[in-house]
Amino acid sequence: MKVLVGVKRVIDYNVKVRVRPDQSDVDLTNTKMAMNPFCEIAVEEALRLKERGVASEIVAVSIGPKAAQEQLRTALALGADRAIHIESEERLDSLEVAQVLARIVAEEQPGLVILGKQAIDSDNNQTGQMLAALTGMGQGTFASRLEVTDEEVQVTREVDGGLRTLALRLPAVITTDLRLNEPRHARLPDIMKAKKKPIDSRGIDTVGLAANDYLRLERVETPAARQGGSKVASVDELVDKLKHEAKVL
């Protein structure tokens, strides 16, 4: 079975973003970028499926600027077999990303598609569900466990209140949650070998995307800072302040 994984280039999760003074957007110049952590989990799950003999080929796909090839190289170093890069300098909304991915799905005919549940920059949590809709597939969102057989995938999902297990007919779309697995790191020899693996890079104009103009970013602001930092010296003082100053007890 072929597995398609989505790889998004995002800000490194350790970096704190700054808003541009003109409020047009956040400032990402010279910011450390990385693979979205939920996509790392998606790649790892695909690798484990291949190690178990369930997956035969892993194709990583990223839509984004030229530099997104760095994250595809990481996926290849981890063990993806090949990569597809759809180059776009434009910022796409989740629907447009899903539309492009649907096009790749039509070309590649994967048995399973694994995306992250959310990108840690936009925090949208939409793309997988949209891709499932556009391709007529079932969806297993926020997955913490997968069990793939010939015709179906059983997916345990992290939901409000606990865990829920579904069975989906294949092909299906899965989005990863944090507890699905713990991603490995790429080893140096594999990083070297990955340089020889193929990345099929094409312009966004080759996928026939009918971009929409529905969403407009009006401005980006820094949230009001919280005034914290006060300390109390003892449990007694804490209880007293909560009762008489904050009046929450």
């Binding site: 704190k16 973003v17 840690i120 920059d121 925090d123 970013l217 401005r219 602001e221 820094t222």
Partner: peptide
Amino acid sequence: IYAGSAIAT
């Protein structure tokens, strides 16, 4: 957006 580091309109 960005874990609440910015607010987008």
